[in-house]
Amino acid sequence: MMIDNESAPVRVVLYEGDGADPLDATDRAGVLRSLLDRGYMVSDARGGTGGALAASAGERCFIVIGQFGGGVAPRLEDGAGGAQIATCDISGLSPDAVLSAVENARDGQPMNQPGAWKPWFPVIDYDRCTNCMQCLSFCLFDVYGVDGDNQIQVQNNDNCKTNCPACSRVCPEVAIMFPKYAAGPINGEPVSDEDLSREKMKVDISSLLGGDIYSRLRDRSEAAKSRFSKERDSDKALGERKRCLTKLAAQGEIPEEVLASLPSPEEIARKAEEAKEKANAALAANRSSD
């Protein structure tokens, strides 16, 4: 599932200044936990020492909560008229009840929420990246591209297949991270010399096993097509493809769902050729500018 890139999270401001009673630490933590786990951004404004996240120009929706005197939330307005500010009195409410009050105050304002989507996309460490374009050549889902200076970049992170770290496996410099991955160095842990040699070894093993995997798929595809033409046995051709992909999954930790969503072998061949041309063009441009 893709995220909604247009909607920004609503910001909740927990106010405990003049005109409001402070929460005790346990209640404060309970309220924050409840709101954060639902996807809200929360500013705890005690003592004026928040402020890492200053309000940005595009921010439009604020919900100010607090234990207000007399149990009545004040009315607040943005003097410039650009932002919508709702207020909620949370006196005596449990964290779950505070969450319900905030959800009501949000009044349908769109925002992404945990559970519907996992932020899974490659993050490039440009201190390590050598712009070799192997990731661009490898990815079949058009996640990578080059910028105006022919520098590799992640252009379509919504296209990335959840839980598939395969491109990071082909990167010879271990420059591609997936922060939500379980293990290092793909998750962003520092890269050790041992990691580097291990990752390079994986690429070498892949070569020994038959060059780049798309060439291998193409070969298999041709073989399957040849058999198909002789035997007219579509089940056998499909079986061949499945065996090939299953082997790739075992080698590259590619999730089965990703394999299931791969295009046909012909489409793979076409896309791989396109990606290779794009990568070669960028590399040639970089060479000529050196």
């Binding site: 999270p9 786990d37 639902r38 929360v42 500013s43 705890d44 003592g47 020492t49 402020g51 945990p114």
Partner: peptide
């Protein structure tokens, strides 16, 4: 002191 908090920096 106060602080700011977000649900998920990756998101």
């Amino acid at each position: 002191g106060g602080f700011d908090s977000v649900a998920d920096l990756c998101e």
